[in-house]
Amino acid sequence: MKAYLGIDVGSVSTNIVIVTEDNEVITSLYLRTRGRPIEALQAGLKEAAAGIPSDLQIAGVGTTGSGRFLAGVMVGADVIKNEITAHAVAASLVQPNVQTVLEIGGQDSKIIILRNGVVTDFAMNTVCAAGTGSFLDQQAARLGIPIQEFGRLALKSTSSVRIAGRCTVFAESDMIHKQQMGHRVEDIINGLCEALVRNYLNNVGKGKEILPPILFQGGVAANEGIKAAFERALGFDVQIPRYYNVMGALGAAQLAKEEMSRGGKTRFKGFDVTSLSYKTRSFECNSCSNLCEIVEVLENEAIIGRWGSRCGKWDIADL
């Protein structure tokens, strides 16, 4: 049986998806990156390899996310794509009529506008990660509430508490102030959800024509409080796809499938890469005043990838 592997190495999570030729998802893994993308990817691939039928053959691999180049050289990717394209492709796969994709991940948030299945506009947060998953994580930890419970609590809110949403530092001091004033935790959490949505719509969503069907994806889509706040602010239903937290990987797998349909043999190195040793190291190039930071990726002590130079002097493009 032929299948396609999609890998999304993000700042917070590393996601792996295996999809069959008929778009059936047989593996869907969401693992924490914890600042160690190589280990996360190896652990993920090991887990994926253990759970697939023995006759399954990987016919193509796609990588995406901020760690897409690293993952790409490690596993031998057939296609390496940015996460905006990957998310849009996955959304169209799940809901062919989709016109708006709201995506909030660990460190970034984006909005993608599609018309007739084609991306016509997109925006990503520019200078600040306010209102993304990392901040919600942090606040849940501070309040001692498991992140899984966070959104559900917001739905129990009975009165609105206003929290500043533009900057996480402002938001946190507002939350602490309101909590010391004696507001209920549920109301504060709901206030935070509304603040994040307000900030999102005013920042990445600025000037965009948001029309249904609307898909909400990325790790933060698990938060019912945010979903409800989006629906209140937009006046439309917001749908959460079944594989909401691995949509980037799903899109990468789909892109790999499209790539392989043009013929050729996959570069996939096999699941054995989980047992190889990978290392990275960096150095500063002193050839000119740019002082580029060059990163090298080593597989069993052999250099398989190198990037970071502006002039291309050090780049190994064995992809």
């Binding site: 901020s66 794509k81 940015n82 996460e83 905006i84 394209t85 084609v118 991306v119 016509t120 506009d121 997109f122 990503m124 520019t126 200078v127 930071e293």
Partner: peptide, 25 residues
């Protein structure tokens, strides 16, 4: 918006997606 950031990944991702969009259009 440009500031002190020297990481190129953010800009590269956005530009790649933007060029994808323009090309499809």
């Amino acid at each position: 918006f440009l500031d002190e950031q020297t990481g190129k990944a953010g800009m590269a991702t956005r530009l790649e997606a933007f060029v994808d969009l323009l090309r499809r259009k």
